[in-house]
Design a protein around this nucleic acid. Sequence first.
DNA 1: GGATCTATTTATAAGAA
DNA 2: TTTCTTATAAATAGATC
Lengths: 237, 237
Amino acid sequence: MTRKKVKLAFIANDSARKATFKKRKKGLMKKVSELSTLCGIDACAIVYSPYDPQPEVWPSPMGVQRVLAKFRRMPELEQSKKMVNQESFLRQRILKAKDQLKKQRKDNREKEMTQLMFQYLSAGKIMHNISMVDLNDLAWLIDQNLKDINRRIEVLTKNTQSQTQVAAPAVTDVVAKIEDKGQGSHNGQGFDINMDLMHKQNWFMNLMNSGGGGGNETMPFGDVNHQNGFWPNPFFH
Amino acid sequence: MTRKKVKLAFIANDSARKATFKKRKKGLMKKVSELSTLCGIDACAIVYSPYDPQPEVWPSPMGVQRVLAKFRRMPELEQSKKMVNQESFLRQRILKAKDQLKKQRKDNREKEMTQLMFQYLSAGKIMHNISMVDLNDLAWLIDQNLKDINRRIEVLTKNTQSQTQVAAPAVTDVVAKIEDKGQGSHNGQGFDINMDLMHKQNWFMNLMNSGGGGGNETMPFGDVNHQNGFWPNPFFH
DNA sequence: GGATCTATTTATAAGAA
DNA sequence: TTTCTTATAAATAGATC
């Protein structure tokens, strides 16, 4: 739909409903036709409307009769199997919508925490008005990021000094470094505190998302049973 | 369809066909459901496939039976009326495709001529290897552009010097000016000959398409009976 | 009421996981 | 195979004529 996401409900306005009916009936018939052609299968469609006493059908009177005969020859029980009835159809769609909502919430939570993390880095001091819950999620997020950083460092050192095997710094090392920069001079060189927040986030997200390792595993906010963290994934309160 | 415009024909590859079938059957059922809900009408769909002995139907066994009964009660003749049979359906689509082709050809011709026009402006001299046909179309195009320029000048002068009513230059005036620039110094200031061709076209097209007057009428390459031109629209040889 | 024209939303073909 | 993702094609709501 377009110009506006239309609500899936009876269209009260008569002329609008008729216009939509004509457009969508045409689109539907095209879809049936394409499905039949592309996949070489039997199908038919019958559409009644108050605008005509005759139903609109696809693909042809005879084609419809043929498919219908086939259908009617089947015992009732068989007919019901594998059928998409309105209830199960809607149930499926509701389920999917709920899943999407859940995913979206996780995603939003992740973004909030990322924002919070950068606010923290910018302020360079502990924010006292942060809730325990947020703090917990934040800690988990930071830990994930640190792990990713370490993975990437490992990959990079291996690639650059192929055999020299420089050990990747431990998680705690990196924590210390970041805390240094954050709590030290607000104009420090190592961590350019002058970057605006958005820039910083972009820079960091790029660091996180591009290149080696990690990939989908980098920020698995949807993975309930995350195994390797210090913290259990907290995004499912 | 996507990633590639798919050819409307039986999909030879088995797994690809099955994948497409599943996706499209689902999409189709959704469409039937939406049509029925939005327009409050009776409809049903039956889809057979080699993947299951039972057909997939919409909206439900009983719903299908009801619609079918309604359909079967009708005399054959009535059933055939208003039906979309495959032949007329395809005939319609072919007709539409032909129309689109025609339109596209016109459009392409317009673009060719525009290109030619700018090549001419850049070269600053008559190109001798141009055909009579092209020359004619080119002349028509230029004339249309000039008319648009004049319309826009009129609007602008009216807007700027509200009551002072400076007469817009006649078509021939503008022709003379453009020829001056084109044939004069190749580094002239008024008409920056250093702009590359694409830039120039963009600049010109912007001039033509944005702002006042003209609008849809500006480049009516599809309008056979264009009334106000010096030249009849030549794009329908 | 019907034909056209966009701006958007949907549907989906290919790939990747 | 199923599912997820992404780039693109198709459908279509609302506006206009």
